[in-house]
Write a protein that binds this DNA or RNA. Structure first.
Lengths: 159, 159
DNA sequence: TATAACCTTAGAGTTGAATCTAAGGTCAAG
DNA sequence: CTTGACCTTAGATTCAACTCTAAGGTTATA
């Protein structure tokens, strides 16, 4: 039997968060004290661990609510249902990774083309790439010239 | 010279979005008509292209505002400033990718351990993993047994 | 019995990037 | 001269997942 503060401390969440989970039906404490304090049982704590674990794996609270409703009524669901939730999330995460890898490549191309030195940005290849219509990034040694050796191995696309 | 609707259509954004960019200082139209209509010039359109390109690369509107303020006053900034913005974003994107890869691995482990069949979820290894305290995912063939050949090459962690 | 540390509630605020609503003004075509 | 497509504004709403505030009630300890 825990009060909200104890449970919060034990699982390193804010009491606000537990109240939020209560209000949204994810974790409604098994009972209340006479004065209205939330009383959490060990089973409630288990449910919280389930929530936190699922959250750590990347599920949204909506996903978790779905998982919990299956969990509470397992025998009326099939493995396929559960795996479905996981696989949708997996596809989701994979799509996000692909998108971010695309961003990363774009940023890397920009970064590599720029000397990063104290020179004026008037001929900065990053700004020029953002101004131009093409997706090509021109290297800076073609526009302002300086001793690039100071600034590391930039501009991967030089001849 | 474009009115808001024309510019919006040309670049496939909503007029709302352009008004939002106006209000937030990202793209203030060069002039207004007598009746107060926003009038965008070709230079404004160019600036919009800059914004959209930067957005596609994954910059937030705040990042873009910074990039634009450098762009407008290039000669008073160094390449290092510009590259700084890009490199911070790059680190950011890399961190997000790493986190998502971690999520992906967790989800993959869960998915692989579950048969995904029409069997009752009572012994579903996904739910069991979420219930248990360990991060290990036990394979289902140890709990409910069925002809797994129907459901593909699941449960990578079997003996 | 007073003080501090707890607990309660309803409701507002946060972030980012729009998107929507209401109430109204402008303009070209028929 | 009216219809409909456009434009204006301020301000509200959306999404997720909290986080915070104000105003007050409870409980353990000195």
């Amino acid at each position: 039997m825990y009060r909200i503060g104890e449970l919060a401390q034990r699982y390193e969440v804010k009491t606000d968060t537990l109240r939020f989970y209560d209000k949204h039906g994810l974790l409604i404490p098994s009972s209340r004290s006479e004065s209205g304090y939330r009383i959490y049982t060990e089973a409630d704590a288990e449910r919280l661990r389930f929530i936190l674990r699922a959250k750590a794996i990347g599920f949204s609270l909506t996903d978790i609510a779905e998982l919990l409703s299956i969990e509470l009524d397992k025998s009326n669901w099939a493995c396929a249902d559960v795996k479905g939730v996981v696989d949708i999330k997996l596809a989701d995460v994979e799509a996000k990774i692909a998108e971010l890898n695309y961003f990363k490549a774009s940023l890397q191309r920009l970064s590599d083309a720029c000397c990063g030195g104290p020179e004026s940005a008037e001929h900065c290849s990053i700004l020029e790439a953002l101004e131009s219509n093409s997706s090509a990034v021109k290297c800076e040694n073609q526009t302002h010239d300086h001793d690039q050796s100071h600034y590391g191995k930039n501009c991967q696309n030089r001849p």
